[in-house]
Every structure is written in structure tokens, then in C-alpha cells.
Amino acid sequence: MVEGVRVPGPEAAGRVVERVRAALGDLVRGVEEHKGFVTVYVDPGSLVRAASLLKGMGFDHVKSVTVVDLVKENALRVGYHVSSYSNPELARVVLELATIVPREGDVRVPSLVGVWPSAEFQEREVYEFFGVVFEGHPDLRPLYLTPDLAEKKPLRKDFKVEEEGIYLD
């Protein structure tokens, strides 16, 4: 699955990118466009400000929060896919707001629950499976896994699955 903004036609994608660049200004560290999909990168420290500006543009909710484990770069790419219920022009748009953080040690990014309450559940999943701590999150605890298994960050690429020694003939 390709991540980013999916908008009808390259002209529409260009208009959204222009508006996002204008709204976010120097917070933007990079933009990727590919076949109508757009991802906007910001520094982790700018994530809350960028999210607030996007919300002001009409992106009123988070559809998903994802992580890509960039092992070769020794980093994690955290992405928020946002869209709009209230703005008909943006209703068909899903924009990815992304940041890249080092994967070693205590990985922290600011929570966006204060901007988009719909991020609450997805940030908990990312915390549980990848070990990303969302600073300021109101209830950061595992949803599905036991705390000891969540500590092992089971969806990171370096997670080793232990065999149980149970085989069926």
C-alpha cells in the first residue's frame, strides 16, 4: 500500500501541496509526491504545530497512525494519515503528516491527541507494537499485548520470534 495523500488527478494534488506548503511554511522538511499520493515531512519538534495548522486548513481527523521501521537508516518513520469530514473539498483527500526519529533508545514523539482526539487509539497501537512513546498521550498503555510482550516491540524488524517447540505431524 502506498502512503500519503490520494487526490483525484495531478492538478488537484498540486493544489493541495501548494496549500499545505503555504500553511506549514518553514516547518516542511520534505514533500513526496507519487501518482497522486503526497506525504509531508516535518521535524518531530514541529509535529504538533504542523498538525494544528493542518487542522485549521480543514483536516479534522486522523484515519490512521503508522510506523515504518527503517533499519538501514536506523530510524522509525511515524506517519499520521489525516482527512476531513467537515470540508467537502478535502473529504476525498488523505494527507500523510510524517516525521522520522532515531530507532535506538527511548523513541519519543509528541502526541497529537490534543489536536486530533481520533489519534488516541492508533497512538496506543504504535506504542504497543513499535515502542514509540507519545509524550502527552492521556492513556499510553498496551491494548492487545501483555506489558512484557509489548516491551519487546514485536513489529520492529529486529524482533526475534521464539519457537515454542510445539509441532504437529
Rank of each mutant, 00 (worst) to 15 (best):
V2S: 09
E3R: 14
V5M: 15
R6H: 10
V7M: 06
A13V: 11
R15S: 09
E18P: 01
E18H: 12
E18G: 06
V20I: 09
R21Q: 10
R21L: 14
A22P: 00
A22N: 15
A23G: 08
D26F: 08
D26Y: 08
L27R: 05
V31H: 00
E32Q: 15
E33M: 11
T39D: 07
Y41A: 04
R49D: 15
L54T: 02
K55I: 02
M57E: 12
G58F: 03
S64R: 11
S64A: 14
S64D: 10
V68E: 09
L70T: 00
V71G: 00
V71A: 09
K72N: 14
K72C: 00
R77E: 15
V78T: 10
G79C: 13
H81Q: 06
V82E: 13
S84H: 07
S84F: 10
S86R: 15
N87A: 14
E89Y: 14
A91F: 05
A91W: 11
R92M: 04
V93R: 01
V94S: 09
L97I: 13
L97D: 06
L97F: 06
A98I: 11
A98R: 11
T99H: 08
P102G: 07
E104P: 00
D106R: 15
V107Y: 06
V107W: 11
R108L: 05
R108W: 03
V109N: 02
V113W: 10
V115G: 02
P117C: 10
P117T: 09
A119L: 04
F121V: 07
Q122D: 10
Q122P: 00
E123A: 04
R124E: 06
E125Q: 06
V126L: 04
Y127N: 10
F129D: 05
F130Q: 09
F130L: 08
V132K: 09
V132G: 03
V132D: 06
V133T: 14
F134C: 05
F134H: 15
G136N: 02
G136A: 00
P138C: 08
L140E: 10
R141G: 04
R141L: 08
P142R: 06
P142Q: 04
Y144K: 12
P147Q: 08
P147R: 11
D148H: 02
D148R: 02
L149I: 15
E151Q: 07
K152L: 15
K153E: 01
K153R: 15
P154Y: 01
R156F: 01
R156I: 12
R156M: 04
K157L: 13
E162I: 07
G165N: 13
L168A: 08
L168Q: 09
D169S: 12
